[in-house]
Design a protein around this nucleic acid. Structure first.
Length: 425
DNA sequence: TCTGGGGTCCTAGGACCC
DNA sequence: TCTGGGGTCCTAGGACCC
């Protein structure tokens, strides 16, 4: 019987911060979401003192002060680079693997790769990168996930590695349904309605009943729980369906010009991403949001989209289209919280149907300015701080109400010459 | 005062077609 | 009394994940 391993980095963002700052070891650490809004990664020490996942920062001010919690803005440049290092080590170990997220990968295990080998791999990743991982082994993705969860929750006993074997059912009896991968609050409630509250009860449930109540998604999970693979390993990630870019503002925004400037920045990021994947967009959507946490204020969350005659990934062209959509939905008198753009209907070169053109098909430009700008920005700046921008994106140094907060970011230790760690003799 | 961002898949329902 | 049936495509919204 072939098996999969799920390798999952522990408290990944916090662990990345710790690699380059030893003073963080042994003390509570948290990393914040964009705009310094929510807590999205916690060290073990931070979990112990009761800081919940996803909690708004302002609700935790007291705990943070009392325990001297170290707080960081997110530094995705650093995390992305550390992730690539971990993944390259894993890739050396097995023939087939799927990078599932920035901090997780599924590995197809060969004969003889069991808990012992997993422990060796775990030690290797820790030694080479400084990142601690947990490894769960099972016949399917769901079982590997469950094993991983057990390994993580009982780290002293398991040493961070667990393989699903005969004791699986005993373990499942102690896991609530919403602890299963793919079962959230809502599905758990539906399952409870069927009298199913533990992972073991789910595993033994009647497939017909599950199918009827949870659809194909539920049936797939049920089969996976019983050792039948329904969720295949995806070695090559399939092409993206859409690319979105949006940000909450650092402060409420009312003026159209400010929204336009923010949107131009989002379009620049989104179109660069689309070009990086060598794709073209057939559709553009723009949306606006007011702050739905402020119940007393008038709310307005409109969106508008347009299908394009010809696919494009040009920054300038997309900025023009998005700007028109924005003026169409904009109404004055609201305090906006967020603006965003979604590039959809992505197609590869040659995969799209040329338009039946009465006014002539657009010519390809002789010099592709966007690609040149992308190259320079990639070499001299980073994704968040491009060195070449357009006038419509505003001036970074002048700030602007819409720019997000990110006041506690650690240096990009591994990707910027100017921010290398300094060793004192 | 302050409350993230970016994805995926599935389903239901409407428009439209023959 | 009679008011078809079956299909596809698209979109919006729900649910979930990290």
């Amino acid at each position: 019987m072939s098996r999969l391993a799920l390798v999952d980095c522990n408290n990944f963002f916090c662990s990345c911060e710790r690699v380059f700052d030893p003073s963080l070891i042994g003390v509570p650490v948290v990393v914040l979401s964009n705009n310094d809004g929510c807590i999205i990664s916690r060290s073990e020490e931070a979990k112990v003192i009761g800081i919940p996942m996803g909690a708004p920062l302002h609700e935790q001010k007291e705990v943070i002060r009392k325990h001297g919690v170290r707080v960081f803005s997110s530094n995705y440049t650093l995390y992305g680079d550390m992730s690539a290092r971990v993944m390259s080590i894993l890739r050396d170990e097995v023939g087939v693997m799927e990078v599932y997220s920035i901090d997780e990968a599924f590995l197809e295990l060969g004969e003889g790769f069991g808990a012992e080998e997993a422990r060796r791999l775990r030690a290797k990743v820790l030694r080479w990168t400084g990142i601690p991982v947990c490894i769960g082994i099972g016949e399917t993705k769901m079982l590997a996930k469950l094993a991983n969860r057990h390994a993580k929750k009982n780290r002293e006993k398991t040493g961070g590695v667990f393989e699903m074997k005969e004791e699986a059912e005993e373990l499942m009896a102690g896991v609530a349904c919403d602890g299963l991968w793919g079962v959230g609050k809502n599905l758990a409630r539906r399952l409870a309605g069927l009298g199913i509250t533990t992972a073991l009860e789910f595993k033994k449930a009647d497939p017909v009943k599950i199918r009827k109540s949870l659809g194909v998604v539920g049936e797939r999970m049920l089969r996976e729980m019983n050792g039948t693979r329904c969720l295949e390993l995806e070695e090559m990630p399939p092409d993206r369906k859409g690319v979105m870019a949006s940000r909450s503002f650092g402060a409420p925004v009312e003026a159209l010009e400010d929204l336009e400037e923010a949107l131009a920045n989002h379009v620049a990021r989104a179109s660069e991403k689309v070009r990086r994947f060598n794709l073209w967009a057939m559709r553009v959507d723009v949306f606006l949001q007011t702050n739905y946490f402020r119940k007393g204020e008038p709310q307005y969350c409109p969106g508008a989209g347009v299908n394009l005659d010809q696919p494009t990934n040009g920054t300038g062209e997309l900025m023009g289209i998005a700007g028109k959509l924005l003026t169409r939905i904009y109404r004055s008198g609201y305090k906006y919280k967020k603006v965003g753009v979604m590039l959809g209907g992505l197609v590869g070169s040659g995969a799209y149907q040329p338009v039946l053109a009465f006014e002539g098909v657009r010519e390809e430009p002789r010099v592709d300015i966007d690609k040149i700008v992308d190259g320079i920005n990639r070499r001299l700046g980073d994704r968040k701080n491009p060195v070449i921008t357009r006038g419509s994106m505003g001036n970074r140094r002048l700030g602007g109400a819409w720019r997000m907060r990110s006041g506690r970011k650690s240096p990009s230790y591994t990707t910027s010459w100017r921010e290398l760690a300094v060793v004192r003799g």
